[in-house]
C-alpha cells in the first residue's frame, strides 16, 4: 500500500529541492518525516530523480544519527542522555525500559509496538530527566513512572 503513494510524494519532494544546491539532507528529512524512516526503494527513486549515486545517499544517511534505515515502532520512546539527564538518573530509566521491553537501545520489540533509543540532548535540561514518547516530551520522569507510560501507550493502541 505504501508503494502506491510513494511515487507522487517523493516527486513533490524532489521538485521542491532539486534546484537548490546541497539539499539532499533536506530531502531526506522530508522522506523520513513521511515514512518514519528512509526505505531503500525510496532511496533508489531519490537517486534516480535527483541524479545522485545511491552510494552518496547512503553515505549521508549512515553518517547522521537522525536518519533511520529501519521502520520505527508504533510507539517510539527516546531517553535523553544529555549531561543533565544523565546526572539525574537517565541511565536507570533506560535500563528499566530495556528490561520492561526486552530490547536493547536502537531496537524495536518483535511485535513492532515499541522502539527504544537514547538521544543526545533534547534541550529540556531544566526538567531532567526527560523521555520523549511519540514526539511528546515528558518532564522529570522517575523510574516508577515507566510502568504507567508503557500502559498508556498500550491502552492507546487498544482504543485505536
Amino acid at each position: 500500500m505504501a508503494d502506491a503513494v510513494m511515487v507522487p510524494d517523493i516527486s513533490r519532494t524532489v521538485q521542491k529541492w532539486r534546484s537548490k544546491p546541497g539539499s539532499l539532507i533536506m530531502a531526506l528529512h522530508e522522506i523520513q518525516n513521511r515514512y518514519g524512516y528512509v526505505p531503500r526503494n525510496v532511496s533508489l527513486q531519490l537517486a534516480q530523480l535527483m541524479n545522485v549515486p545511491l552510494a552518496r545517499i547512503y553515505e549521508v544517511i549512515t553518517f547522521y544519527n537522525y536518519f533511520r534505515l529501519e521502520p520505527p515502532g508504533k510507539h517510539n520512546l527516546s531517553v535523553c542522555m544529555g549531561t543533565a539527564c544523565y546526572l539525574k538518573g537517565a541511565p536507570a530509566l533506560l535500563d528499566t525500559l530495556k528490561n520492561e521491553l526486552h530490547v536493547e537501545e536502537g531496537e524495536t520489540t518483535p511485535d513492532g509496538e515499541f522502539h527504544l533509543e537514547s538521544v543526545r540532548c533534547v534541550g529540556c535540561c531544566g526538567l531532567a530527566p526527560v523521555v520523549v514518547a511519540n514526539g511528546e516530551t515528558l518532564a522529570k520522569v522517575g523510574v516508577n513512572a515507566i510502568g504507567g507510560l508503557l500502559a498508556r501507550c498500550r491502552n492507546e493502541q487498544k482504543e485505536d
Partner: peptide, 26 residues
Amino acid sequence: VRLGAGAFVCGEETALMHSIEGRRGT
C-alpha cells in the same frame, strides 16, 4: 533554513558547511 541530522561534529564550522552542502559532516 537547513537542518542538522544529529551529528555533534557539525557544530565545527567546516563540518557544518559540508552538511549544508548536503554531504557528510566531516
